[in-house]
Structures are given as C-alpha cells and as structure tokens.
Design a protein around this nucleic acid. Structure first.
Length: 561
RNA sequence: CGGGGCGUAGCUCAGCCCGGCUAGAGCGCUUGGUUUGGGACCAAGAAGUCGCAGGUUCGAAUCCUGUCGCCCCGACCA
C-alpha cells in the first residue's frame, strides 16, 4: 500500500485525552479516533489489525466446532424482561427511546430464543454458537481508550448441551481454544478462577493480562501459575509466635500512639508482635476484627465469613462500643463478637490496644485472654508473600480481563422455557455455557506489551504490514525507480508492504513515522547506499541494521537482521 | 454517582487570577522556491460563533449563574 494514498493520520504530539501507552499509540499511529466517550472509529490501519485478530479467533472457534452467527444488536426489550436482566443490568443496558428495544450488551437471550423450538432433542446437541459483533454497554465511566468503551467488539460464544457432562466438554474446548487464540496473538496472559457474578452460573475462568491500566487486582505466582483475584487470594505468611512462657497481661502508657508503626517504634518491638483491632458493624452489631501486625482486613473475605451487611464502624461509634478511639482498641474485655485472622491463632505475648485512650497492653495470650475468639482467613494478600501452592513468591498487581468462560447452567433456558426431550422422553432445560473475548482489548493489550519510546513494535501475526519500505527523497529518480521495483518485487514475493512514497516528507520524518507505526522490518532505500547497489534493512524490535546488496534483498529478508 | 481538572485554529497549548486596541504561539495545512539518511529552510497565505445559554458591565475569552462535553481518581464493572 502506498503511504501517499493512504489515510494514516499519524500524530507527533501526544493527544491530551490519552494516558495509557496503548491509547496514546493507537491515536498517534492513526489506528483509531475517538468520537465520544467510550466510542471509537477504527481507522483502516487499525481495522486491518482488528480483522487479523478476528480471523485468528474465527479459526480457533471453528476448530472446536463453533458455528458463526450474526445476532442482531437491536433486541426486543420483552425478551430481556423475561430473564430479569433489564433490572439486573440496570443503567448499563442501553434502551431505545422511540421503540421497546434495547441495545444488546450480550446475547444469552437471543441464543436461547433461537434454541427454543429448534433444539428439541438430546440428539440436536451439543452445539457451539458464536459471533464476533459490536456490543453496547452504557458504562458510567469509559476509560483507557478502547479497553473500556460504551461500544466494543466482542467474540461471544454459547454452548448448548443436554447435561452438565456435555457442558464440561464444551467448557474445556473453549479453555483450549482461548489459550490457542491468545498464544497465537502473542499475548502474555494468565488464568484466574473467578466468581460468576451477575451472569449466573457456577464455574468460570478469566483470561487476564498484567497491566497498570487494569481494573482487577490479582495475586499471581509466576512459578506454578496460581492466580486469584485479590479479593479471594490466599498466601502463606508468617504466623504469630507462640512463646514457651506466656507473660501476664500488663498495661503500658502509650501517649499519642495511634498506629501499629508508632507502637512498634515507641516500644521498640516488631510488627509481628502486635495485634491490630478494627471494628465493623455486621447487621447492626459490632464485631471486633483482629489482625496480625499491620495486615489489612480484606472486606470481601470478611463479608463472606460473616454474611449479611458489613461496614466499618464510624469514628464516633468506636468510643461508644469500646470506650476508646481508633488506635487504642483491643480484644480484652470486648463485650461483643470477636474474630481474628488465622495467623493470630495460638499467639501469645502480643501487644494490643487497651480499650482506653493512650494505653496499650502487653502479654496478650489470645487463647487465655479471649477464649471465645473465632479464627478465619481475613487478610489481604500482598506482593512478596509466599504462594499457597508452591511456596514461591507471589506478586500482586492490576490486570485487564481479556476473556471469560462461564458454565451458565440452566438459568436462561429455564427463564425462557428452552427445553428438550432426553433419552427417556423427559423434558429438560438446555444446559448452557457462555464464553467471551474482548477483541479490542486483545488489540490494546498487545500494544501494552509491545512498544518502546519510539512507538509500537508489531510482530507476527498481528502486524498490519510485513515490511515498511521507505524511499528517502522520492524526488531523486534513482531512489524512486528502485523503490518502485523493490515494491513490486516484495509484493510478488508474498509480502504485505507499506511503501512510504511521499514526495515531500523528509528522511527523518519518514523514519519516525516508520518507528511509530512499528512494522517488523524496514527496508530503507536512499541515494547513499543505492550508489553501491545496496539498501538497508532495519529490525524494528532490536533496532539492528544491515546493509545488503540490492539483488540479494529477497534472500536477506529470509534471515534474521 | 462522589471528588478533581479541562473546554481558545485540524493538533498541542498560552492569554483568564487583575475585564479594555484587530485573540496569540508552535506543529499541521495552502502557494512558490530551496532542501532530502533521523520529525528541514525561506517567503507569502488560509484558518477560531474563545463549548453553549443567560446575566453583570460603557465594554466579557477573562467576572457570575446555569448547561453540555471530555479527561483523571473513586464507586461500579457479564
């Protein structure tokens, strides 16, 4: 493709609306343009890459027996009301003003609609139905470029099975297909077991990419692959000590000591010898939550342990409940329920608050002094702690969800009455699975993982072009003529070539555009080398250059630069 | 939805606090010329209802009120 005739609007300056690298580079290199918050146009070069991603997805979905559909984006609202999801999605669901339609944020309802009355026998299953299509969600806050948009492209697939054993098979096939898809796209990802949330259903896995632009926090072990959402992640951490000799409880005056840090430096003790108290209100009743040292309470774990509604106590409630302000609260003589983190079990000679302002206690023996205490895993996992599976070091970081596979079960088939007859002539609801991939996110994540200070660094197979042919000074007839011939030869040899044939752009301008656009190989044709019958090859990723004989160009391209 | 920031030429931004000639710069664009191995140079030029509406004032990009949009943090997130 000739650059001079292409719409590739590159930008020298960093667009003000973009913050993360992929977003900045997608705009600067003319791949996308924003139309409104969370709404983007894919420009030709970007759409070319997007099509490559979609084609990989298509191939892998077809390989597991998937059949491609094209479901409507516009859905009757009625069908969404039948599954209760108008309410479940709430404001996220776009609703059409002048007709009773909604813009589909996903397609379980429509799949169930088509299955109903058509998939009527156990002999009709299994089925794998999928599509690659635009989805609409009224996100309250779109962000990070195409990573979270109000309109985005999703590959969504659905399995229809007669029983859960069949569902297990379909789920495993998708797990395999997803690994192939992300592997082929050259993306570094990991897999997290997750809760299914508002989709309904049981088992699910998320395919994640590490990124500071991510919306989930996960704990990950590089060595064994253990990965979990930080809300549920477990780790091995050092327990509180149990000393042979248990001291008696004694009061210590600690004026103005409010935090564990201050307590440690005031008493010259280790964090590990202290027990921190936090007060929560659980269904209206106070609960003291005791943590070892400075460990943070994981409120998701706390909520799942307690059930019901849990919130931190307000500062003015603390005094009323404990007799002291935050910083001096402790478990001794606390008149309400007390729960503690597992790490504190059997701990003794601990320091904690005295429930009296400006006083702490020493010699706390939990078994002896707070016998009714209950122990649970309540702590927030932090980077550097040990993996519960292999003992290696865990890392905690932000991540982007690229794909999600669910075992839905019969939620939608029951709601919409999608039944079949089994081997015994008995009517049963179809068992469904649902599987999504954020196609634009694959694109953005690839860039997040493949760029440098000059621009994007594409690699096979997503690169929009194989070769960026740069003609320096196209007004020089020697350069122009040779470029034209090279361009034709490269295409004839099967390469996809972007030919920078612009007459008026200076050399430096072209070099910088080429680095920004990031094709894997640059073929640089200038008067200097051409006089000796040579051209230059540059490897975009390594920056390495090689001067080669023009007549040996095609051979040289076969070899690493 | 809570907190913060921004809206002036196609892009990046200055001017606004402290109201006052004809609203600026760089990049980009047009024309002509000179250049051509790392974002060239000279000359001439086109281009803005200062987001929108209302108000205060002799006078508003600038002050006030409202409104819309965009970005960031948080909440939310199949």
């Amino acid at each position: 493709m000739r650059f001079s005739k292409s719409f590739i609007p590159t930008l020298k300056e960093v667009p003000s609306e973009a913050v993360i690298p992929s977003h900045i580079l997608m705009i600067r290199s003319g791949l996308v343009r924003q139309v409104s918050a969370g709404i983007y146009t894919w420009l030709p070069l970007g759409y070319k890459v997007l099509r490559k991603i979609m084609e990989i997805i298509r191939e892998e979905m077809n390989a597991i027996g998937g059949q491609e559909f094209h479901f409507p984006g516009l859905n009757p609202k009625e069908i969404w009301e039948q599954t209760g999801r108008v309410e479940a999605f709430g404001d996220i669901l776009f609703q059409i003003k002048n007709r009773e339609y909604v813009l589909a944020p996903t397609h379980e309802e429509i799949v169930a609609f088509h299955a109903k009355g058509s998939i009527v026998s156990y002999k009709d299953m299994p089925q794998i139905w999928y599509q690659i299509q635009t989805k609409f969600r009224n996100e309250p806050r779109p962000r990070s470029g195409v990573i979270r948009g109000r309109q985005f492209i999703m590959k969504d697939a659905y399995t229809l099975d007669k029983d859960t054993a069949g569902l297990d098979v379909g789920y495993a096939l998708h797990d395999k297909a997803y690994r192939s898809i992300f592997d082929r796209c050259g993306i570094k990802y990991f897999i997290v077991g997750a809760s299914s949330g508002a989709m309904g259903g049981s088992k699910s896995e998320e395919f994640m990419v590490k990124s500071s632009a991510g919306e989930d926090t996960v704990a990950y072990c590089e060595k064994c692959g253990y990965a979990a959402n930080a809300e549920v992640a477990e780790s091995v951490a050092e327990k509180a000590l149990h000393h042979a000799e248990s001291k008696n409880v004694y009061e210590i005056s600690t004026p103005n000591v409010k935090s564990i840090d201050e307590l440690c430096s005031f008493l010259k003790i280790e964090e590990h010898e202290t027990a921190k108290s936090r007060i929560y209100i659980h269904d209206g009743q106070p609960v003291l939550v005791l943590m070892l040292g400075n460990d943070e309470v994981n409120e998701t774990k706390l909520t799942s342990v307690l059930g019901g509604v849990v919130r931190p106590a307000h500062p003015d409630e603390l005094k009323e409940i404990t007799g002291a302000d935050a910083g001096s609260i402790g478990p001794i003589n606390f008149p309400h329920r007390t729960i503690a983190d597992n790490l504190l079990k059997d701990g003794n000679n601990l320091y904690s608050g005295a429930n009296k302002n400006d006083y702490h206690i020493g010699g706390l023996d939990l078994k002896r002094d707070a016998p009714k205490i209950e122990y649970f895993d309540l702590r927030t996992t932090e980077s550097g702690e040990k993996c519960i599976r292999c003992g290696s070091t865990l890392e905690v970081f932000k991540a982007i969800e690229l794909g999600h596979i669910f075992k839905l079960g019969t939620k939608y088939s029951e709601a919409l009455g999608v039944n079949f007859l089994d081997e015994n002539g008995k009517e049963k609801p179809i068992v469904m699975g649902s599987y999504g991939i954020g196609v634009d996110r694959v694109f953005a994540c690839f860039i997040e993982q493949n760029f440098d200070e000059k621009g994007i660094v594409w690699k096979e197979p997503l690169n929009p072009f194989d070769i960026h042919l740069i003609g320096l000074n196209m007004k020089n007839s020697l350069v122009a003529e040779n470029c034209e011939r090279i361009y034709i030869d490269l295409i004839a040899d099967g390469y996809e070539v972007l030919f920078d044939d612009r007459m008026d752009a200076s050399a430096g301008f072209k070099f910088n555009d080429a680095d920004l656009l990031g094709m894997p190989v640059q073929v640089i044709v200038g008067e200097k080398n051409l006089k000796d019958g040579k051209v230059e090859l540059k490897n975009r990723r390594t920056g390495e250059k090689k001067i080669v004989e023009l007549h040996r160009l095609l051979d040289q391209l076969q070899e690493p630069i």
